[in-house]
Amino acid sequence: MVKKRLSFSVRDELAARIASGRVAPGAKLPSEPELADELGVSRPTLREALRSLEEDGFVTRTRGAGTYATRRPRLRNNLDVNFGVTEAIRAAGMRPGTMQIAVHTEAASAQVSLDLDLVLGDPVVILERVRTADGRPVVFSRDIVSTSRVSASEVARMPVDGSLYDVLEHLGYAVANGVVTIEPSLTDRALARLLKGKVGVPVLFLRQVDFDLNGDPVLLSEEHHLAEAFEFTVVRRGPGRRAP
């Protein structure tokens, strides 16, 4: 137990060095004997810490070449749990932020009407944001909700990094669950400009419909996640014991 706790402490120390820039992106870490001696731990303890850092995307390890700090640690997001981009960024030990924000109202398209159980052309509020991790743009999101549930002024009064889940819950539409689809895509010119990157960069497009406690659809979210910045996990259950 002591060894395991110590490896966690070593892991946190090295992660902090990388996240703060004390170890530059792409820099090679000292050899295992040197690093173990510097940190005052055994090599098995250090290896356990390095293995955890590699799993979390802070370092890459190549046999015979050594251990290198990555350009950016990947943000892990467990799709079994319905939480937002801000929480995923904080969980990775980085600072969440918002670069751009826009709120406007438009008529619901055929697809939006179908997803939110509206009449074609019903007014909806759209909240568009570019989300950042340590100042780097990593997600462009569009949240769409019917004006019959939330007004444009209520959305506009939200804190910059606020959650529509909180607004919906305050108004009596607490989200119980959501259904998400994920598709691979590439940045076009508009998306590349928003994420301050190049055209043709891989992204993961998430489209999610959230339902309240009554099973009614209350929120549609469309998010473009930089593929290099995120890692998504899903717990697959079953099939369990089968009859002979």
Rank of each mutant, 00 (worst) to 15 (best):
E169F: 06
S163A: 12
R207A: 12
R149M: 14
P96T: 09
E54D: 14
R129C: 05
Y173W: 12
V81A: 13
D210Q: 06
H170K: 13
A192L: 10
T45I: 09
P33H: 05
E228K: 12
V10I: 15
G172F: 14
V112W: 02
V203L: 05
F83P: 03
G240T: 04
L206E: 07
R236L: 15
T147D: 04
V81G: 05
L206Y: 12
V155S: 01
D117F: 05
A102G: 06
A15E: 03
L186I: 14
R17G: 12
E48T: 15
A88R: 08
A110G: 03
A174Y: 02
V2E: 13
L168F: 10
T67R: 00
V81E: 15
H225K: 04
R22G: 10
R17V: 00
S113R: 01
G64M: 05
T45L: 02
I101D: 12
R11L: 13
D188S: 01
A92V: 07
A243I: 11
S163D: 05
P244T: 13
P44L: 10
E183N: 12
V180K: 11
F58S: 02
R17Y: 13
R90F: 07
G162D: 03
I144M: 07
G162I: 04
A190D: 11
A229N: 05
I144E: 06
S221Y: 07
S20E: 07
G84H: 01
P244R: 10
L79M: 09
F83A: 09
S52F: 11
D188V: 02
P73K: 03
L206A: 08
R236T: 13
V2Q: 10
E228D: 13
T98D: 01
V199W: 02
A16F: 09
V234K: 15
A174F: 00
G238N: 04
D117G: 08
I126K: 11
V180C: 11
F232W: 10
P73W: 00
V59I: 15
S9M: 12
G200N: 04
A229G: 03
N77E: 15
S221G: 14
G64E: 03
L220S: 07
A49R: 08
N82G: 00
R5Y: 12
M158D: 06
M94S: 04
R131F: 09
G240P: 02
D122I: 03
R149I: 05
V150H: 11
I101G: 14
H170S: 15
P137V: 09
V167F: 09
L206N: 01
R95Q: 11
V218W: 00
L168A: 07
S20Q: 03
R131A: 04
F205Q: 08
V203M: 07
F205E: 07
V119E: 14
V139P: 00
G21N: 09
P244V: 11
G57I: 04
L213T: 12
L120V: 15
E38W: 12
A92Y: 06
